[in-house]
Amino acid sequence: MIMGIGVDTVNIERFERIITETPAFIRRIFTPNERSRNVRSQAVRFAAKEAVAKVLGAPAGLNWQDCEVATAESGQPYLIIRGTIADRARKLGINRIHLSLTHDEPMAIAIATAEYLSDAELEHLRKFNPESYRLSVITETSADEG
């Protein structure tokens, strides 16, 4: 069942000005892995974090670094969710978040789709598409699965 959709757009040029003028912004928002990316990739990752916050209702107290945007070998973006982000998702009954990213000057766009899957649906996903399961399911025990 779809629980919510979040979308965000970021103007890449404006984003670049912000990170140039405020270097602390990068350290506050991005994980070390994300900091090594180029400006376009950082802009779309920021849009992704905003989209995830929106799908979670944007409550106060979310730690931006608890939501890391990573890339699978296939090129598919996925989330590594932990801490405040994972706690909020679980509280809302969300156990899977899909992510779609694109950037084409001058904009970066991200869409996050949150859903709840039953135990049977999760098992089906794990059995028939283990890579998708690993990349997108929020579990109780593993903070590094997104």
Rank of each mutant, 00 (worst) to 15 (best):
M1G: 07
M1W: 01
M1P: 15
M1Y: 06
I2Y: 01
I2L: 06
I2C: 00
M3I: 14
M3Y: 04
G4W: 04
I5K: 00
G6M: 06
G6S: 08
V7M: 04
V7A: 04
D8Y: 03
V10R: 14
N11S: 10
E16F: 00
E16W: 05
I18N: 09
I19P: 02
T20Y: 03
T20Q: 09
F25L: 05
I26S: 10
F30V: 15
T31N: 04
T31L: 04
R35M: 10
S36D: 06
R37P: 01
V39Q: 06
V39T: 07
V39Y: 03
R40N: 05
R40H: 01
R40C: 01
R40P: 07
Q42F: 00
Q42C: 11
A43M: 13
V44T: 08
V44Q: 01
A47G: 11
A48C: 06
K49Q: 08
K49L: 03
K54Y: 09
L56Y: 14
L56R: 14
A58R: 14
A58T: 15
A58S: 15
G61D: 13
G61A: 13
G61H: 08
L62A: 12
N63Y: 08
N63A: 11
Q65P: 15
Q65S: 08
D66L: 02
C67Q: 02
V69P: 15
A70P: 14
A70N: 10
T71V: 07
T71R: 01
A72E: 10
E73I: 03
E73Q: 02
S74K: 02
G75W: 10
G75V: 09
Q76P: 10
I81S: 04
I81K: 03
R82Q: 12
R82T: 13
T84K: 07
T84S: 15
T84Y: 10
A86N: 12
A86M: 07
A86C: 06
D87N: 11
D87A: 08
D87F: 07
K91E: 15
G93T: 15
G93I: 15
I94T: 11
I94G: 06
R96H: 09
R96F: 11
R96C: 09
I97A: 01
I97K: 00
I97Y: 03
S100M: 14
S100Y: 13
T102I: 07
T102R: 08
T102V: 09
H103S: 00
H103W: 00
H103D: 08
D104Q: 05
D104F: 01
E105Q: 06
E105W: 06
P106Y: 06
M107K: 12
A108V: 09
A108T: 09
A110I: 04
A112K: 01
A114G: 04
A114Y: 02
E115M: 05
Y116T: 15
S118E: 10
S118P: 09
S118M: 06
A120E: 14
E121Y: 04
L122S: 07
L125W: 03
L125E: 07
K127F: 11
S132T: 10
S132L: 06
R134V: 14
S136I: 02
S136R: 00
S136C: 05
I138R: 04
T141Y: 03
D144A: 01
E145A: 02
G146C: 11
